[in-house]
């Protein structure tokens, strides 16, 4: 349902504001499936009928088209109906695959070896990568990549409203970086880099990270973005300069003339301004005529010195 101010279709003079109130049109899954069925059935049926008409009677070709179009439409209907399930399966494909492999490996191992050997193999397969810091870090980093892709999806689904149909950006490849993870994302219509930059802090929180940065990953396509999730500070060690290695260590020290070494290095050694400043006040006040008696009694304290 939409409502707008009086229509001025072809750039006619407008009063400046156009209010467009769009009610959220939630196309139900059933409606989408029905549409998919009709479209697929009609298009596939017609195509099949046209092809068949070249060899058989057109009326028979229509029947053939219907026979082919209806099952294909039904297939499309089923696909659309179970699309949410397919989508979830697709999102969790890496985890499902890894779990299946591990489970199958475990079953095969248990079936073909004795229990002590099985436990020994498991201990080695799990223990060795866990014991070596480099592999442990690599495994953890890739595990974080899997986590971050899901967390980013949570961000897009929960608080970054994309468009009316609720389609989520395509979360592509993720790979570990020394500071965290880098994820490539392809935006769907309704979002932009500027929209996301306003939500960096919330994205960082959702990803259990310290900060998040977003850059364009392509010069030619504004929808292709790169998320840099940062959860570690790596630039803490001191960095040396390679120039130190190019010089000759036996360089003779340059004979510099000894500069004049200044003396007054502490505060009490420097006393000139602190003494002269109050002294400069007196002539100024007497010049104004406000303190004419100040010069006549030099021994007594002048109150103005202490203010």
């Amino acid at each position: 349902m939409s409502k707008s101010s009086p229509r001025r279709p072809f750039g006619g003079k407008s009063n400046g504001t156009i209010t467009v109130i769009e009610a959220k049109v939630h196309r139900s899954s059933a409606r989408n499936a029905r549409l998919a069925f009709i479209l697929t059935a009609v298009i596939a049926g017609l195509l099949a009928a046209v092809v068949a008409a070249s060899s058989i009677h057109p009326i028979l070709a229509l029947f053939v088209g219907a026979l082919i179009g209806v099952p294909l439409g039904g297939l499309a209907w089923v696909l659309v109906r179970i699309w949410p399930v397919l989508r979830v399966l697709w999102w969790w494909t890496p985890e499902i695959g890894i779990t299946t492999l591990v489970g199958a490996g475990w079953v095969q191992l248990a079936n073909h070896t004795t229990t002590p050997v099985t436990l020994l193999v498991v201990a080695l397969v799990v223990g060795v990568p866990a014991a070596i810091p480099a592999t442990r870090r690599a495994v953890l980093a890739w595990a974080w990549c899997l986590v971050v892709r899901h967390r980013l999806r949570v961000c897009f689904a929960q608080f970054i409203i994309a468009n009316q149909s609720g389609s989520l950006p395509l979360i592509l490849w993720a790979r570990p970086t020394p500071v965290g993870e880098r994820v490539w994302v392809y935006l769907r219509p309704g979002l932009s880099l500027a929209d996301l930059e306003g939500r960096l802090d919330r994205i960082a929180v959702a990803c259990h990270a310290s900060t998040a940065l977003i850059e364009r990953a392509s010069d030619g396509n504004a929808a292709y973005l790169r998320f840099d999730i940062k959860r570690r500070e790596v630039l803490t060690a001191q960095v040396g300069s390679p120039l130190v290695d190019v010089i000759d260590p036996g360089t003779p020290v340059t004979d510099r003339p000894t500069p004049a070494v200044p003396t007054a290095l502490d505060l009490p050694d420097v006393d000139v301004p602190t003494v002269t400043l109050p002294a400069q006040k007196k002539p100024a006040t007497s010049a104004n005529g406000s303190k004419p008696a100040a010069s006549t009694s030099p021994d007594t304290d002048d109150v103005s010195d202490w203010i």
Partner: peptide, 22 residues
């Protein structure tokens, strides 16, 4: 870009400066 700048100690600077001057 987040970077960490190379650091030269006073002795290293003195060494390079002497060498360059030489």
């Amino acid at each position: 870009r987040r970077i960490k700048v190379a650091y030269l100690t006073d002795a290293q600077i003195a060494g390079i400066a002497d060498y360059a001057a030489w």
